[in-house]
Simulated assay, not measured.
Amino acid sequence: MGIRIGTDTVTRFAVPTAQRKILHVDMDAFYASVEQRDDPSLRGKPVVVAWRGARSVVCAASYEARTFGVRSAMPAIRAERLCPQAIFVPPDFGRYKTVSRQVRDIFSRHTDLIEPLSLDEAYLDVTSTKTGLPSATATAEAIRAAIREETQLTASAGVAPNKFLAKIASDWRKPDGLFVIRPHQVEAFLAPLKVGKLPGVGKVMEARLTEMDVHTVADLRALGQPLLEQRFGQWGRRLHELSMGIDDHPVSPDRLTLQVSSEDTFEKDLTLDQLEPHIRRLAEKTWAGHQREALGGRIARTVVLKLKTSDFQTLTRSLTPSIRPRSAEELADLACALRERVQRAEAELYRLVGVGLSGFVELDSFSAQGDLFEGEDD
């Protein structure tokens, strides 16, 4: 079973460069670290940032909690079973956002090309910087030092010629680490990695590649682009590019979220009637993503249900209700109801389901108008 959580975005500004120097900076166990910083009694203890309850999910876990297998997006009740001694702390997103702004201010001293991915991580294009530091590595070191001094928190960073490599690198020496992949090292660095390290290769795709005796990036590269395209179409071409370390996507400093979504591909195809528990679980994850976006002052109005049939046909149904969903449960109810608009045979099987929120508007303007939108659907 593979789960993907993501946001679709539109880029409003991008600066292409011939040879980029990209940083990916990722705060270490951010929410939990803020809690431990602000409450010394929590330091060195397994901290889980989440509300208790069967319907709650983990927002973050300290490294002490992670040793027990606790991870973000995990149901809180499972985290409690894995680590009975965990200290549960309800999230305080306002406080996390304040710290995130401090970190963003540090980034902006070095470059204006900053692409935030969430409150705790961002890409930076430091091909040219404001500080005149001699290298991207020196810039990463300066940023990490400033974060430590000004926030009393730690961050890990990756330095590479492109975004996807920088993101892999930032995870290489976590926590509180720095890893550099230089252009001439790219192919050798990637070769021994498991194919699951490549962006977009989830558990289901990894299993399909394993069936082809592809386990590492070197194995994938050896198949060649023609065979990969024959098997996987355009995605096969992208897989080949990634195996070669090619990623031309620029850092996009001004982007708007179009949709927050979560998807689940099943090990065994299911009927429409069997999807409800999966829809409700994905609604929790999507709602958590929406709440992070709401911290930036934007909320979604439209509920989206995505389905993929056993023969790979993709279906989507959406609804813009007169009153927008106010909770994960309301989102789940609406997404489940959208199944009624799927005019297919009852015996039809589905291999994937997704729950999304789209139609983002500014919270201030929405509040001024109130819930006056008439219901829409398509």
Rank of each mutant, 00 (worst) to 15 (best):
105 D>H: 13
105 D>C: 14
106 I>Y: 08
108 S>L: 06
109 R>T: 10
111 T>R: 14
111 T>Y: 14
112 D>E: 14
115 E>I: 12
116 P>C: 13
119 L>V: 06
119 L>P: 08
121 E>K: 08
121 E>D: 07
122 A>P: 00
123 Y>M: 11
123 Y>L: 07
125 D>C: 13
125 D>A: 08
129 T>H: 10
133 L>D: 13
134 P>A: 11
135 S>C: 07
137 T>E: 15
138 A>P: 04
141 E>Q: 15
142 A>C: 15
142 A>P: 15
143 I>C: 15
144 R>V: 06
145 A>F: 00
145 A>L: 10
148 R>A: 12
149 E>N: 12
153 L>V: 00
153 L>N: 02
153 L>F: 04
154 T>Q: 07
155 A>E: 10
155 A>T: 11
155 A>K: 10
157 A>I: 06
158 G>D: 09
158 G>R: 01
158 G>I: 01
159 V>F: 09
161 P>Y: 00
162 N>R: 04
162 N>P: 15
162 N>H: 06
163 K>W: 12
164 F>Y: 10
164 F>R: 04
164 F>E: 02
170 S>Q: 03
170 S>A: 09
172 W>H: 13
173 R>W: 01
173 R>G: 14
176 D>Y: 06
177 G>S: 04
178 L>D: 12
178 L>Q: 12
181 I>D: 06
181 I>G: 08
181 I>H: 04
182 R>W: 08
184 H>K: 09
185 Q>S: 04
185 Q>R: 03
186 V>K: 05
187 E>P: 07
187 E>A: 15
189 F>R: 01
189 F>T: 08
192 P>T: 01
193 L>R: 03
194 K>I: 00
195 V>P: 08
196 G>F: 00
198 L>K: 07
198 L>R: 04
200 G>V: 01
203 K>S: 02
203 K>D: 03
204 V>P: 04
206 E>C: 00
206 E>R: 02
208 R>P: 04
208 R>M: 07
209 L>V: 00
210 T>L: 02
